[in-house]
Every structure is written in C-alpha cells, then in structure tokens.
Design a protein around this nucleic acid. Structure first.
Length: 290
DNA sequence: TCCGCGCCCCGGCCGC
DNA sequence: TGCGGCCGGGGCGCG
C-alpha cells in the first residue's frame, strides 16, 4: 500500500508528465457514477461529478506537490489558482497514457475510476482497486483541513522539535510509542510498515509507553523514522500489496526490510514477534528491541 | 467542546 | 476448488 515514500515516487514520476498540461475533460467509471448517484462519496469527495469536471476543465496543471501521503495538484485558470487533493488510500495509482490499455496491468485497467483528459491527447488515469482513495476539489488550500492538521514533513528542520513537543502532551504518556509515531499530528506520513522498521532501527520495543522513553531515545527514534523514509524513497517504495508507480513498476524497498513481514530478525537472526499494537499488525524483535 | 470508539467503504487473499 | 472472513487509511457519527 502507498506510504509516504511511495507517494513521493508518484509525485516525481507524474510531475514531468502532467505539469503544463491543460485539462480538457474528465470521465468517471461506472462504479464512481453509480456510487455517487446512490449518495456515497465514491473517490470523488465533496462535490458531485459534474461540479468536479466543470471546476477543473480548462485549467492548466501548474504544480504537483506531496504533503504527508497526500498529493496536491495546483491548477490555474484565468481567474485563480485552485487545487485537487488526492490520497491513494490502500490501492490507488496514477498513470499517464494515450489509452487505458497502455497501463498494461489488468487490475489497474479494470479498476480505473477517473480519467482526466489532457490537451496533448494523453490521459491522467486514477485507478484504485479497493476504492479507498480520493480526489477532492478545493478552491483554497485552507479548505484541506485534513492536511492542515498534520505535523511538518519529517525532512523539514522544524519537524523534530514539533515531534518532541507533541510527545510531551499528557494524552501520549500512557500510550505506546508506536501509536504515537503513527499519528499524523506527531509525525507526518509514518505508516505501519515504516513505523515497525524505525522502531527496530532505534531498538525500541513498540509496546513501550511514551513516558518510559527519554529525550535522547526519542530523538534517536525520530532520526530512525527519517532514515527509513529516505531509504523507502531511495529504493522506489515498497510494494506490499499492490503498490505500483507511474510506470506501473513495483518498488523494491520490501527487500530491504529488517523486521516488517519477516520471520527472522535481520539483526540477530532471532524469531520475529507479531502482535496487534495500535490496531495494526506489528513486527518486532524482543531481543533487539527493549 | 473534545475525545475515543466503532463503523464503513472494498476486493485480494488466506485458511479452512 | 469454493467460500467466508479478515485486513486496513481515514472520515464520520455517536456517546
């Protein structure tokens, strides 16, 4: 599933293919059309399909940015800048193709949901097998309340101080460190897989409560989070369950994992413990992580 | 007003 | 080989 490194790759792959393009039309799959007409918010959130198309048609795609696991498409027409905020959910993927079949992967062809037609004749396709993802049109970035509330990007200078400050809040003291770092108000974009890897790298048992971890160890953990996220970006993201980049290729970060999804700890060779922590399947090594 | 819990959305895939 | 049940990011309703 797409986490921060995967979304970063989508951004990098997509940007050169779509920036400067003018949107000439939008088509939606039958699933989206049916879902929306039955009152659900199928993929297209906040507006009806006609409004979504009317709002973006004729606009130029000026920029593509990533914030946490969200993509932000900046559009511009003769009146103003406006935006599409997109989350890939569990199984979302973007492609830029001349025609749908060029995606080449049957599941992503069958489960296409939004086709944004571009002036060049190509299409920006959003495919999503489980339909947990979203595209949301907004006039102003301030409307993206779910993005405004999240911590700074982990790579930003202020992110460490922000994280340390958040961890001092009373609500976190009795909770597990894993739950804390997976919360977007503490660290931005650290999902389950990278949380497991970072805790392993920092040699912290994920069951440990926040109050039992000192400042130096907290800092070490933050640096581990930044490290594993950077590794994830470097190795093309991980392709546990269905992630594909813009070229339809899998990442290979999953071959670099030291603890997640493994039976044997990559550090000591001991057995990996598995347990649900903070509602998520957690892998850790009781020998290496104290 | 804020918080936390449970539910919901879905199809792949695991295990019986 | 068939099928029931589990998984999971994030929004939302409710207590």
């Amino acid at each position: 599933m797409p986490e921060l490194p995967e979304v970063e790759h989508v951004k990098r792959g997509l940007s050169p293919k779509i920036i400067g393009e003018i949107i000439t039309g939008v088509h939606f799959s039958e699933k989206v059309t049916a879902g929306k007409s039955s009152g659900k918010q199928t993929i297209i959130k906040g507006t009806d399909l006609e409004t979504f198309e009317r709002n973006i048609i004729g606009s130029t795609i000026k920029a593509l940015d990533r914030r946490s696991k969200y993509l932000i498409f900046t559009l511009e027409n003769e009146w103003h800048e406006h935006y599409i905020i997109s989350h890939l959910g569990m199984s979302g993927a973007y492609f830029v193709v001349d025609q749908l079949e060029d995606i080449g992967i049957p599941n992503y062809i069958n489960h296409w949901h939004v086709a944004v037609h571009l002036q060049s004749g190509r299409q920006l396709i959003y495919s999503d097998i489980r339909r947990f993802g979203e595209l949301r049109y907004i006039e102003r970035l301030e409307e993206a309340t779910q993005i405004m509330a999240i911590a700074p990007e982990p790579f930003d200078d202020e992110a460490l101080d922000y994280y340390l400050t958040q961890l001092t809040a009373s609500k976190w003291q009795g909770r597990t460190i894993k739950e804390a770092i997976m919360n977007h108000s503490v660290v931005s974009g650290c999902g389950n897989i990278y949380a497991c890897e970072a805790l392993h790298l920092a040699r912290i048992n994920p069951n440990k409560t926040v109050k039992r971890i000192g400042r130096a160890k907290r800092i070490e953990l933050f640096q581990a989070i930044v490290h594993v996220l950077n590794e994830g970006i470097k190795y093309g993201g991980s392709s546990i369950s269905s992630y594909r980049n813009v070229e339809g290729k899998e990442g290979f970060m999953q071959t670099r994992f030291n603890i997640y999804g493994r039976k044997i700890c990559a550090t000591c060779g001991g057995p990996v413990s598995q347990k649900v922590i903070a509602t998520r399947n957690t892998h850790y090594c009781t020998h290496c992580q104290k």
